[in-house]
């Protein structure tokens, strides 16, 4: 049996007194594309941020590629990981944000080559040529020297995807990658993501794009109120939802 890329068991997370995740249990296999759907405030984005330890979980078990997120188990006690160890693990997980979060003081090429140079300690030229390849792959070879402010939203998000890919991640997290885009720019970003899925990347995508979920996802998970309401192949969850809440949600977004 292969090790699951992501394994969550009863993951709980609260902000102050507000419990945002109330026991999430799911598994993502290597090469699988999972789409997380659900109304806003259902905890999808928080769960995604827990996976690369941008948020700390309060209870439950969360592991990536067989290793616990943020902790090391010694005997039957958990030890917090040092900052450098957390950083090293994050480097293996790519993340794409709703608002792109490109570094505005760097050109597209610098955005993509920055982390390989600083974190992986790659030689500058090597990192830049790899960055050029990646920007070519997302169709932005003519925008290497453009600053983020000079790019459209769709172009910025494609640079952000290239930036995440530059670290050769084994897992990609997408946090509503198209929600901040003008409708006519959504397609170009989804296309890049679809290509990525075809190339075998393991992906977890928080999205409202039901069409994308139906076409690309291997598994669709519907979350509401901090719990997984139902999950399964897109044809089942989207085509023939078993739960009333899923049906109500889908009737609103479709």
């Amino acid at each position: 049996m292969t090790v699951a890329m992501v394994r969550a068991e009863g993951v709980h997370k609260r902000f102050g007194r507000v419990e945002v995740l109330k026991g999430i249990t799911l598994e993502v296999q290597p090469g699988e594309v999972m789409c997380l759907l659900g109304p806003s405030g259902s905890g999808k984005s928080t769960f995604l941020r827990c996976i690369n330890h941008l948020e700390k979980i309060h209870a439950g078990l969360l592991s990536v590629d067989g290793e616990l997120v943020g902790y090391r188990q010694v005997g039957d006690r958990l030890h917090e990981l040092r900052e450098s160890e957390v950083a090293r693990k994050r480097a293996e997980i790519g993340m794409v944000f709703q608002h792109f979060n490109l570094f505005p003081h760097m050109t597209a090429l610098e955005n993509v080559s920055c982390a390989p140079i600083r974190v992986k300690r790659l030689a500058r030229e090597q990192a830049r040529s790899h960055a050029r390849e990646l920007l070519d792959r997302v169709g932005l070879l003519d925008k290497l020297d453009a600053y983020p402010a000079q790019l459209s939203g769709g172009q910025q998000q494609r640079v952000a995807i290239a930036r995440a890919l530059a670290m050769d991640p084994k897992l990609m997290l997408f946090d509503e990658p198209t929600s901040a885009l003008d409708p006519e720019l959504v397609g170009e970003v989804l296309e890049v993501m679809q290509q990525l899925a075809r190339d075998g990347m393991t992906m977890i995508v928080v999205t409202h794009e039901i069409g994308f979920a139906r076409e690309v996802a291997d598994t669709v998970v519907f979350m509401d109120g901090g719990v997984v309401v139902e999950s399964g192949p897109p044809a089942e969850v989207l085509g023939n939802p078993r739960h009333e809440r899923t049906r109500t949600f889908l009737s609103k977004v479709l």
Binding site: L54, S84, A87
Partner: peptide
């Protein structure tokens, strides 16, 4: 500076100092 900048940097594996 927007907090998303630190999120993005840390998700790429940068330490706090970096």
């Amino acid at each position: 500076v927007d907090e998303g900048q630190a999120d993005a940097a840390q998700s790429l594996g940068m330490t706090r100092v970096q």
